[in-house]
């Protein structure tokens, strides 16, 4: 979500109270004036909170002179439903489910620092400060999946970046399994459907010297949200699973698949990371294409030739020189 950083606890409290009052009145209308006087806030503030609820997926009918009522409620996660038939031993061992959080990654990092076990999962219906790379925002309205998982892999820190490729493989496999959308991976770990981004991963690590203390895998998947909630420039390059498959996706089932898939590929990674790289290659839509990589000191353009054993992208520049990049934004260029 884009709004109100620093709005804090009070705002959320008012919003949740309005939700409660509207729910209590059922199919009857509640006027803005009634809400305002019950709450002790202005009608403008009531309107602002109604708008915020709409952004979270509530369908609210507003009729002049009568007031507001809820028509549709967003489908919400329930921890019991998620656990039912999950069958994992690591991922989802502990599930922290929140209606809204600043960032699932930040909370998971905090929980991990306080000793949360491997496989602890933080799941939120919405994020108010969802994170992307380098301070970028991950716009996070309701209707999607925002999940972060704590890992404590018994491998040296230098191998940790491979876990991001592992998570990409697991996510692509889960999307294919649950919704049938033909998900592909753009280096290093964006998930695309029909050339548009449907999922992004952000991993954070705390390490001392060569030893990993903990890692948090953050995965955002755009599932059922209304794409109109996104700014135009983002909407143009992204899509949702519902949009691609033409039907609403069962988020709980997709999440279960994701946790199972992560568990499977995490075990594969610990056993033989080369198998992860191989699977990544089979899902990738970057290699063999002409790409531009920005975010480094210079803009690199050339043929995406392969990935090395550490998962870094090898680009063959037009002058024949091979360059290896560990980070950057990759754009797949159209064939000339």
């Amino acid at each position: 979500m884009t709004c109100c950083t620093g709005s804090g606890f009070l705002e959320i409290m008012y919003k949740e109270r309005i939700l409660k009052l509207l729910r209590a009145s059922g199919t009857d209308y509640l006027s803005g004036a009634q809400l305002a006087s019950t709450m002790g806030i202005s009608r403008t503030m009531v309107w602002k909170h109604i708008k915020a609820l709409e952004r979270e997926g509530f369908g609210i009918e507003a009729v002049p002179s009568r007031g507001y009522r809820i028509i549709t409620v967003p489908d919400l996660f329930r921890a019991d439903d998620i656990r039912r038939g999950l069958g994992t031993r690591i991922f989802g061992r502990e599930i922290h489910l929140l209606p809204e959080v600043a960032s699932t990654n930040t909370l998971a990092m905090e929980l991990a620092a306080r000793g949360a076990p491997e496989g602890t999962v933080v799941l939120a219906e919405a994020q108010t400060a969802g994170k992307g790379r380098l301070g970028r925002k991950w716009i996070s309205p309701r209707g999607n999946i925002y999940v972060s998982a704590v890992l404590r892999p018994p491998v040296p820190a230098y191998k940790a970046p491979l876990l991001t490729l592992m998570a990409a493989v697991a996510t692509a496999a889960a999307i294919r399994g649950a919704g049938g959308a033909p998900a592909l991976i753009k280096w290093p770990n964006d998930i695309l459907v029909a050339g548009r981004k449907v999922s992004g991963l952000l991993t954070e690590m705390s390490a001392e010297a060569d030893r990993i203390r903990h890692i948090v895998l953050g995965i955002g998947i755009d599932v059922n949200m209304d794409p109109d909630l996104l700014p135009d420039e983002i909407r143009a390059i992204t899509t949702t699973l519902a949009g691609e498959t033409g039907q609403a996706i069962d988020r709980t089932e997709l999440l279960r698949q994701l946790l199972r898939s992560l568990e499977h590929w995490y075990r594969v990674f610990l056993d033989d990371e080369r198998r992860v790289l191989k699977e990544w290659e089979s899902f990738n839509c970057t290699l063999g294409k002409r790409v531009a990589v920005s975010g480094q000191r210079e803009l690199l353009e050339g043929l995406a030739e392969g990935i090395d054993r550490e998962g870094r992208l090898v680009i063959r520049l037009d002058n024949g020189e091979a360059r290896t990049v560990a980070a950057g934004d990759v754009t797949i260029l159209k064939k000339i």
Binding site: R133, A157, P161, T164, W187, P188, S206, R312, A327
Partner: peptide, 13 residues
């Protein structure tokens, strides 16, 4: 230090 969207905050020892 970033590698493939893995962000590693390096702390002072």
């Amino acid at each position: 230090i970033e590698a493939m969207k893995l962000m590693n905050e390096i702390e002072s020892e």
